[in-house]
């Protein structure tokens, strides 16, 4: 029997007092802390609704799709379904962005593309074009410029090949769009067949992943939801599975939840394997 190492009574490191910022000392297009991002505005910027927490200067906020800006928007927003969730900030000043105390990161694209979960995208420069991804619930940014995205916990980058839990996926860059992967063993045999039919019976919760192959980067977060429902072994309608468990109303229905988090709707009965074909519009 060996005893565990004994921690000493913890002491905090000597604090050097809180840092205060003003309009001049706020960072220029950089993080203030891991959870707040400061934008120096001189022109226009696209923001998801309600993500601006404070600003200095002369800035106005316009809903996307409100008259005067429509021409600009026509070029940037190829995603009419999401337009109602966005505003345009215009003017000069510094503004601080934040989202539910999630970690924020900025990404610089140089003639690149990055696809990100719609609820995670916070803001982007108008030099970037926003398009709806073919994967429901995801948005693709194209071109050159900077954007800001939120994640639950720091973003972890992984190179393919890798399989990820749908909830943990923040987005991906460059690599081909993901495929769905179902655990082989899980679907085999009598029990597997039964599970497939009923969607019931001990599910590990991990029989379904997104699989990435090829060259690129995959962005992972700890989880999408802060306090999700605990899984009780049902396979259907996992949060984070685009359209998972939702009755499909045509393919355009891919956008849900006002661009915030995907709703966690539960449709009991059929497992999520049953509507596989329809879900992908195959």
């Amino acid at each position: 029997m060996s005893y565990p190492p004994q921690p000493t009574l913890p002491w905090s490191t000597a604090g050097q007092g809180p840092v205060t910022y003003d309009a001049y000392s706020l960072p220029v297009n950089d993080n203030v802390n891991p959870y707040a991002f400061s934008v120096e505005l001189n022109g226009s910027y696209f923001l998801q609704k309600g993500k601006m927490v404070a600003y200095y200067g002369d800035i106005s906020f316009q809903g996307v799709g409100h008259g005067a800006l429509d021409r600009l928007l026509g070029q940037q927003f190829n995603s009419p379904l999401h337009a109602s969730d966005w505003v345009v900030a215009q003017g000069r000043g510094k503004m601080v962005l934040a989202d539910r105390a999630f970690d924020l990161n900025s990404y610089d694209l140089d003639q690149g593309n990055l696809t990100v979960r719609s609820g995670n995208l916070l803001a982007f420069e108008p030099t970037l074009a926003l398009k709806q991804s073919i994967i429901p619930g995801f948005l693709t940014l194209l071109g050159t410029g900077k954007f800001v995205a939120a994640s639950n916990g720091p973003v972890h980058f992984m190179e393919p090949p890798v399989r990820v839990d749908p909830q943990a996926l923040v987005g991906w860059a460059d690599c081909p769009a993901p495929c769905h992967h179902y655990d082989h063993h899980y679907m085999q045999g009598v029990l597997g067949g039964l599970r497939r039919l009923t969607g019931l019976g001990g599910a590990s919760g991990e029989e379904h992943q997104f699989e990435f192959v090829g060259a690129g980067q995959v962005l992972l977060q700890s989880s999408e939801a802060l306090m999700p429902e605990r899984s009780v072994g049902q396979v259907d309608a996992e949060p984070g599975v685009p359209g998972g468990g939702l009755p499909q109303q045509g393919y355009q229905g891919g956008h849900q939840g006002g661009g915030q988090q995907l709703p966690n709707l539960q449709v009991p009965g059929l497992g999520n394997l049953g509507d596989l074909g329809r879900r992908f519009g195959l």
């Binding site: 809180p18 910022y21 003003d22 959870y35 927490v53 404070a54 600003y55 200095y56 539910r100």
Partner: peptide, 18 residues
Amino acid sequence: NGPAVILRVSQGMPLRVD
């Protein structure tokens, strides 16, 4: 909820906050 950002307000530099 999340570390607070401390913003200074001075004459001629008003601040607007959510």
